[in-house]
Amino acid sequence: MDFLYKQNEALLFEIQETKVWNEMIAFWHLGQSGVLLKGPEGMICIDPYLTYRIETSDPLSRKC
């Protein structure tokens, strides 16, 4: 099955092999609101989970 987006090892390989030059950044959408930013000095992952659900759910229950 072909996927529209790369995932797993193919995505990791693409991120690792992408060259980013001075004053530039590369970014990948990781699904929902997750983003990976890569610059010449390193990378950062941002994956905000914007909800109060965790605070209001029963921490002992695994049901979401």
Rank of each mutant, 00 (worst) to 15 (best):
V35A: 05
K38R: 06
Q32H: 14
G42D: 04
P48K: 01
F27Y: 10
M43E: 15
Q16Y: 14
V35Y: 01
V20T: 00
M43K: 12
N22G: 11
K19D: 04
V35P: 04
D47Q: 11
E23S: 12
H29D: 08
G39P: 02
I46P: 00
I15C: 04
L30P: 03
M43H: 13
W28R: 03
K19P: 04
M43C: 14
L30S: 04
G34C: 00
L36P: 03
W28S: 02
T18S: 07
G31W: 04
C45V: 15
P48G: 01
T18M: 01
W28P: 02
I46S: 05
L30Q: 02
H29V: 03
G31K: 01
Q32R: 14
A26F: 05
N22D: 15
I15A: 07
T18G: 03
G34R: 02
Q16H: 14
L30G: 07
S33K: 10
W21V: 14
W21P: 09
E41R: 10
K19T: 09
E23M: 11
N22H: 12
E41C: 10
Y49K: 10
N22F: 11
F27M: 10
I46W: 06
I44M: 07
L36N: 01
Y49N: 08
F13A: 15
G31S: 07
D47H: 10
E14S: 10
Y49L: 09
L30Y: 00
G34V: 03
E17T: 12
V35K: 03
G39A: 08
A26V: 03
P40I: 12
C45D: 09
G34H: 00
Y49A: 08
E17V: 06
L36A: 03
A26Q: 05
K38D: 03
L36G: 02
E14F: 05
